[in-house]
Amino acid sequence: MTRPPHLDPRLVAVVALGGAVGTTARWAVSEWLGTSAAGWPTATFVVNVLGSFLLGVLLEALLRHGQESRRGRLVRLGAGTGVLGGFTTFSSLALEMERLIAADQVALSAAYGTLSVVLGLLACLAGVALGSRRVR
């Protein structure tokens, strides 16, 4: 009997392990870049754009490999769903936008949300383009 991946404890553990790594890396970036007292949430911004690029590269490269192997699935779930999924965050983005609005910085909040998505999409597109080149 084959159960769906999300109900397979071993695969859930692989995602959890990757998520722990990605979350720690995101925390490290925020410690490194510091929390800007008032204004642009640099850490979340950098993490989200960089993570979108890397996930684009990874998923496209795996896709170009053709039929997914067991190993390919472990890489996709561990590094993709786990590490890069955990590295990037939508909840912090949303809360930071809300906090900026609460501080009467509506324009900055809108610019932050818009630029995150636009640069996130462009980075992801660039990643996909790079990922498609990796495999001959």
């Binding site: 999924g85 955990g86 990037t88 965050t89 909840s91 995150s116």
Partner: peptide, 15 residues
């Protein structure tokens, strides 16, 4: 930062 950050994902939404 831990749970909500690990739970939500920006990169997957972009892909």
């Amino acid at each position: 930062t831990g749970f909500c950050g690990g739970y939500t994902t920006f990169s997957t939404a972009m892909v």
